[in-house]
Amino acid sequence: MNTEQLEKEFQARIDAEEKIEPKDWMPDAYRKTLIRQISQHAHSEIVGMLPEGNWITRAPSLRSKVILLAKVQDEAGHGLYLYSAAETLGIDREQLLHDLHIGKAKYSSIFNYPTLTWADIGAVGWLVDGAAIANQVMLCRTSYGPYARAMVKICKEESFHQRQGYEIMMHMARGTEAQKRMAQDALNRWWWPSLMMFGPPDKESTNTEQSVKWRIKRQTNDELRQEFVDKTLPQAEYLGLKIPDKDLKWNEEKKGYDFGTPDWEEFYNVIKGNGPCNKQRLDARVKADKEGEWVREASMAYYEKKSAKKKVA
């Protein structure tokens, strides 16, 4: 069968809602798109541990500390499920990490912003995880089997993340005047970067159309962003906090909110490496990789020695 026929059959399977599994034939571009997207997603989970890990030692109570620890540990787990899914496409983990460390692979630009106060941990859980959930719920039905399965597990765990974030926001918003100011300040700083998490507007998004056709994605960036705004606004109102957007208003016709345009220049600038924490984040990952190298080598050496002994016996 020639490639054109294979591609046609492949698209027919996608259109029939069949899942694609690792050893099935797939177009090179489908494989490449998935490797890029899944590894980016995995890197985001791993780098995402850093801004939150920043507050583990300073959590205001033992309760909040164990919760934050569990959440950061979950992020590590999510990264690992996703690397595992990416590896089914025939790329090694070592290569994926290498691409991250040399700056070739991207991760979500949101993690290049700093977590300045404890309220930021609330805002990250509520908004950043909230935005991630909107995207991930869609991805539970993505066309590539291993990616979809990883997403189902991630979504189950992610809802704890958003709820713990919202709980922190509730405590702060109902606390002292100073705490309320901190909560509002965290919302002000995280709101726009959270909207940017859905990616550029549809008219500028180069990957969306093909990804929708392959059912890797099932909703566009703008649709997901709209969904997120509509869901989040009542949650902010309940907290008595104000979303920092003067253009935000109900649109009866579309049964959703109209909202302002994120600063896309800032978005591209952060992606290019000029966000407040890009260098710090990447340095931390490279350092962890380097410092763990001897452990990986020593444990392999131990394993080889042990298996050699077993063979003799």
Binding site: A70, Q73, D74, G77, L80, Y81, S84, A85, E87, T88, R93, P146, R149, A150, E157, R296, S299, M300, Y302, Y303, K306
Partner: peptide, 21 residues
């Protein structure tokens, strides 16, 4: 799913942390 580990014992321990939290 899958994971990386040096040997089978480490694989079981890692599987506990990665897949059974």
């Amino acid at each position: 799913g899958s994971l990386h580990a040096a040997d089978e014992e480490m694989a079981v321990e890692n599987a506990r942390d990665v897949y059974c939290r």
